[in-house]
């Protein structure tokens, strides 16, 4: 059969595949997951960029029917698309934790997700411990972290005594069996940072700029000045319906006494993305409230061993 070349970029690897012309998104996605040895596939997706907006490969649509550049190799980024409610409980396998760790770390360093300075320093110290093990003064000499990128630019301000912070954080807070050491340590980054919210910037009717966040628990509206505490939150079980028409996006609360919330996005494409993220996040929200599948039960048992 006729094929085309696809390049897949993960957080720490690049690979190429020959993809059949007729393959759907799911065929390619499954092949990538098998190659990585990843079983907790439901958090992930294949991302591409179109006109400065990210989009995700649809499982039931042919790869080549997507609005991707047809120049070979066709490139996709393999990334976490949905974040867990509770990273420690839900990210079972080491490979899943590893991919989340790398992705969230990068997003914090690139300031794509906001992480307060104190939390950044704490997370940096965990990252160092994950990579180098427990602090040992005979091995870890002064300056051994100089080449590492560990903190967002904003935090690396000369006036901010970060290195002192890490140095004391190292031997004090991070010894085996204390604090966050051990399993489940890495993915905490997502919980401590922005909770895995995908932020986009819709505008309301008056033209005031707002930020919309979609996460594991619902939809949140933020003032751009404060990305940590939402102005308004719509938990999944308090929403009746979500819809868009062109650039207008509508959230209908279950309680009829609460106003319908409307805003305008910059592009129709953004509304499509938001609705997709809503459906996927809500689907996972519902699944978490049902018994674990046999596959997940088995993985958890293995991880405990």
């Amino acid at each position: 059969p006729k094929t085309f070349t696809v390049r897949i970029v993960t957080m720490d690897a690049e690979m190429e595949f020959n993809c059949e012309m007729k393959w759907k998104g799911k065929d390619l996605f499954d092949l990538v997951c098998r190659t990585l040895g990843l079983r907790e596939t439901w958090f992930f997706g294949l991302q591409y960029t179109i006109k400065d907006t990210v989009a995700w490969l649809k499982t039931d649509k042919k790869v080549l029917d997507h609005d991707v550049s047809k120049e070979e190799p066709v490139t996709f980024h393999f990334l976490a698309k949905f974040y867990p409610e509770n990273a420690e409980e839900e990210l079972v396998q080491e490979i899943t934790q590893h991919l989340f760790f790398l992705q969230v770390k990068k997003q914090i360093l690139d300031e794509k997700i906001y992480c307060p300075p104190e939390a950044s320093v704490l997370l940096a110290s965990y990252a160092v411990q994950a990579k180098y093990g427990d602090y040992d003064p005979s091995v870890h000499k002064r300056g051994f972290l100089a080449q590492e990128e560990l903190l967002p630019k904003r935090v690396r301000h000369p006036m901010f005594p970060v290195w002192g912070g890490i140095a004391t954080e190292g031997p004090e807070g991070i010894t085996e069996g204390r604090g966050p050491a051990g399993r489940g340590r890495k993915p905490r980054a997502s919980a401590a940072a922005d909770g895995g919210r995908s932020l986009s910037n819709p505008q309301n009717k008056k033209g005031t700029e707002l930020l919309l966040g979609v996460d594991a628990l619902g939809l949140h509206i933020y003032d751009p000045e404060n990305r940590l505490t939402p102005k308004i939150s719509f938990p999944w079980n308090e929403i009746r319906n979500i819809s868009y028409s062109d650039k207008e996006f509508t959230i209908k609360p279950l309680d009829k006494k609460i106003d319908v919330f409307k805003f305008n996005s910059s592009k129709l494409r953004v509304n499509k993305l938001i609705l997709q993220l809503c459906i996927g996040n809500h689907d996972l929200f519902m699944r978490r409230r049902k018994a674990d599948s046999l596959e997940v039960q088995q993985m958890k048992a293995q991880a405990r061993e």
Binding site: Y244, S245, L268, H282
Partner: peptide
């Protein structure tokens, strides 16, 4: 023409489908 300009997701309806 092909591009759909509307989208809709019934959050409560999805819940009901699941519980059935």
């Amino acid at each position: 023409w092909h591009q759909r300009r509307r989208g809709n997701y019934g959050v409560q309806a999805a819940w009901r489908r699941l519980r059935r």
